[in-house]
Nucleic acid binder design. Sequence first.
DNA 1: TTGATAGTTCGTATATAATCGAACTATAGG
DNA 2: CCTATAGTTCGATTATATACGAACTATCAA
Lengths: 100, 100
Amino acid sequence: MRNYAHPDLADVTIEHALHALSDPVRLDIVRQLDRAGEASCAALDGGRPKSSMSHHFRVLRSAGLVHTRIAGVQHMNTLRREEVDKRFPGLLDAVLGVKG
Amino acid sequence: MRNYAHPDLADVTIEHALHALSDPVRLDIVRQLDRAGEASCAALDGGRPKSSMSHHFRVLRSAGLVHTRIAGVQHMNTLRREEVDKRFPGLLDAVLGVKG
DNA sequence: TTGATAGTTCGTATATAATCGAACTATAGG
DNA sequence: CCTATAGTTCGATTATATACGAACTATCAA
């Protein structure tokens, strides 16, 4: 794998984004990326198997929420904050702002 | 069925709400209720079978998004706008504001 | 009380998603 | 080249959702 394809946000539906965010593991990833700014897959696995994490990162990428950059042996992930904010104004603020 | 139980919004997780909103049929229902203010189940079915609609309304109610009031033979639905806005500030604005 | 209407519940079929081990790929360092 | 590390892909299993016909319940009106 040389690098990832990241969808144009214009091609991502709100349903797709909401589905990606509705899983607790993925929501946790998104929250951590929001704080950390950038993190490898392993840094966010919380003890879960690599293949499960790989699946969740793929879903997050396909929903346009996460960008993954290959840096040597690590895959570094970031939230596509600005683009998502442009496509779905207020969505991430709302989702990340919730307590409990 | 005499009347429905509607959950306290405090007991609804953001994951639950996002999941309820991530289905196209339900999102359509929510959009229509946002415009119409109140509507019967039949008014929103778009030709789909009653049992399918009943399922989607149940999911929307369990996620705290929709209130259903029995009025004679009809079940009238409304968005629980204020309560949802209090629990998840900005979420409905973001979801309902999206075009495309 | 009969019939019509609105919606639920049940049961089942089907589709979609989550989980995770095992084998694989790619990169870096010794 | 060998090995360790990070992550992917595959495949199977299991869980969760959706879809919807059929039978049922509740209300209203004639």
